[in-house]
Computed example of a mutant assay.
Amino acid sequence: MSSNVATRTIRIGSRKSQLALVQTHWVQAELSRHFPDINFEVSTMETQGDKILDVALSKIGDKGLFTQELEDDMLSGDIDFAVHSLKDLPTNLPEGLRLGCVTQREDPADAMVVHEKHKDKQIDTLPEGAVIGTSSLRRLAQLRHHFPHFKFKDIRGNVNTRLRKLDEGEYDAIILAAAGLNRLGMSDRIHQILPPSISLHAVGQGALGIECRSGDDDILSLLKVLEHEPTAQRCYAERAFLRGLEGGCQVPIGVNTTIENDTLTLTGIVASLDGQQLIKDTVTGSPTDAESMGSKLANRLRDQGAQEILDVINAENRA
């Protein structure tokens, strides 16, 4: 690397939330370890999704809800790249931007955290009428499918705010991403990891996606050290599946991916909000065919009626 590159300052964009900063500072530390002669600075900002806390995410519209302000700063040159939770990054990026790398995935599963009075319970032994907190339509639809006897209540705010609301008795249990709790050092709050048979996770959940300008070869070459190929292959399959269904972050689409013996297995679901309809299928293939596998699975679910379910949900969200 030339000396003029090695001595410059590179600016990393991040949301201001505690979890976002933990993730971004990890990226900063890893890059500093690999490139000690470069100064990596973190620039923080609030996104639209951070500011609107009194409206369900599905009602706001999710195109760039947690990313647009960071993307604007990249395009204007104020920052060089941005660190996102990959599940927040739309599958179609603005012109001039690209996904620079995908980092090694944390546990992508959903986790249940319970009020103290239910510490001897699992999700299938919670009492009838238990109040479950989630802001995710994906979790809501799947849990309604399996547990129609629960009551579901929207919950917003950062992880600490959600845990406080649970501890104060507003909910019997809440569902969060295991990855976020692990990264925040709160693994002890995880009461149960929900298996894929109950809840398929969000596209990209548990992985970080680093977004940068398309033609910035300098930055792209730096980010290569953070790329984790098996995670990237799994996430590219998941994102192609979501893109194929023209779904955003706030639709009841769930996935599960594994790579074993050089075989990628991708399972996907589309569910109705009331949980009555749940369409699920699986494809397998080579990890190098990840994107075409995602598209193939999207087409298969569409043929089985997924598009009709999504059309109803999108109409309700626009209403």
Rank of each mutant, 00 (worst) to 15 (best):
V203M: 02
Y236W: 13
Q205W: 01
E246S: 14
G248M: 02
Y171K: 07
L200P: 02
G169L: 07
A173P: 02
L222W: 10
Q205S: 14
R189W: 11
D172A: 11
H149S: 14
R162G: 00
H146R: 15
K224I: 01
I190S: 12
R144S: 10
A237E: 12
L208Q: 14
G247P: 08
A177S: 15
D154N: 15
L140D: 06
D216N: 15
D154W: 11
I155M: 03
A179S: 15
G247A: 13
K165D: 06
R162S: 00
N160K: 12
N160L: 08
L176W: 07
G157K: 06
L208K: 13
A173C: 06
R138V: 01
L226W: 08
A237D: 11
L181H: 03
H228N: 14
E170M: 09
L166P: 01
S214Y: 04
G215Q: 13
R138S: 04
R156K: 14
I219C: 07
D216K: 11
Q142S: 13
G185L: 12
V203R: 01
N182D: 12
L245D: 10
A178I: 03
C249I: 12
E211G: 00
L200G: 07
I175Q: 07
C235T: 10
V203N: 08
A177H: 14
N158D: 15
F147Y: 15
L200F: 06
F150V: 07
H146D: 15
L220A: 12
Q233P: 01
L222M: 15
D167K: 13
E229Y: 05
V159A: 03
I174N: 05
C249E: 05
S187C: 01
E238P: 05
G244Q: 11
S214N: 05
S221L: 10
G244C: 12
